[in-house]
Design a protein around this nucleic acid. Structure first.
Lengths: 187, 187
DNA sequence: TATATTTGCGGGTAAACACTCACTTATGCA
DNA sequence: TGCATAAGTGAGTGTTTACCCGCAAATATA
């Protein structure tokens, strides 16, 4: 990503690492300052509160997830391919950026309550794919929001159980199975 | 439930209400004492720590969810009926005991990390249903753990989005749609 | 070079936290 | 009735917390 290394970015990076490991609440400003190798005061030069910092960190990671996903959608534009790319993108992101993924999902569902719930771009993108597929008669008519929730839930929960070691299957097979399951629902 | 009203139960009830509303971390022992109308010291007569209290509260609610689910499974014993009862049971529990449900799910996935992850009976029960169905050739062969994760994720995420008002459909239809989707995956 | 603005520091602070403890009151039992 | 134990109290404890502020150094602007 070749970013400019400013103190501000140092803070964000340190906060990111800690939030991912311990969660937002359990991470202290002192922890962050220590890790970023700056003083606590400096944090408040750049962010008006710990909450604002958390918000920024969350958005940066969501953006990353989002870019990653879009990369997987570039190839082809028929709904079935889009969906399969989407699913693969989610799994790959979760695999390659385990902590980032967990943070985004966990923060979205619990830690950042009201904040930016509407900003969950990956979810909105899924809805769009489904609607496109319905318009083109690839997928049967159904409430796209409901279907998207189902699919998103399938993905997150599957990843969750894989990570916690309760599903002993390898990635390619899980991706394949999940995609097949989604298509069965939608067709 | 007609429970005996002891101070201990008062504490559990107060803690439950607060944990459900604000989460475990954000609830202080002072909050609990105030709400239960007892002193903070009393909490420590009955529980050796806040963590232990949280554990008890979690288990009580999980037990409730569990009993509720079993009630929905009593009728019939062919896998398809069992599954449909299971799904209905989840949705009904989430509807009738919204906060309890959220607490159990949230606590399971984030707050109680290592504790009692193995104790997630509803998940284990789902796996059993799927295995039974496979044995009886009602459902096709597949990794039951993976399928259970998918289905459980479908349910939790759907409920999550319904509660947050992002899916505007009524319960009977959602239950029906979700059941149909599950069967499509499994058949 | 003189001056204004930004960036960084780190000790300090008040509030909040989970938990303790010496003590009082209630309960069970012979 | 007398006594042992359990239940309940609330002021206190030592930490930890997010955040502040006076000051210094760096950087930009003239």
């Amino acid at each position: 990503m070749a970013q400019v290394r400013t103190k501000k970015q140092d803070i964000v990076n340190a906060a990111l690492a800690l939030f991912m490991k311990k969660g937002i609440k359990a991470t202290t400003t002192r922890d962050i300052a220590l890790r970023a190798d700056i003083s606590e005061g400096t944090i408040y030069r750049h962010f008006k509160s710990k909450a604002e910092l958390a918000q920024v960190v969350f958005e940066q990671n969501l953006e990353l997830f989002w870019k990653h996903l879009r990369h997987y959608l570039h190839r082809g534009d028929d709904p079935e391919q889009l969906l399969s790319g989407y699913i693969r993108g989610c799994f790959e992101f979760a695999r390659r950026h385990q902590r980032r993924y967990s943070f985004v999902i966990a923060a979205h569902q619990t830690e950042l309550k009201k904040l930016s719930r509407q900003k969950m771009k990956p979810m909105r993108m899924l809805i769009k794919i489904l609607m496109l597929g319905q318009k083109q008669k690839f997928f049967r008519e159904a409430n796209a929001h409901l279907a998207a929730a189902m699919i998103f839930g399938m993905l997150t929960q599957t990843i969750f159980y894989m990570k916690s070691g309760q599903i002993a299957v390898n990635y390619p097979i899980v991706i394949q199975e999940t995609t097949a399951a989604c298509l069965r629902i939608l067709k």
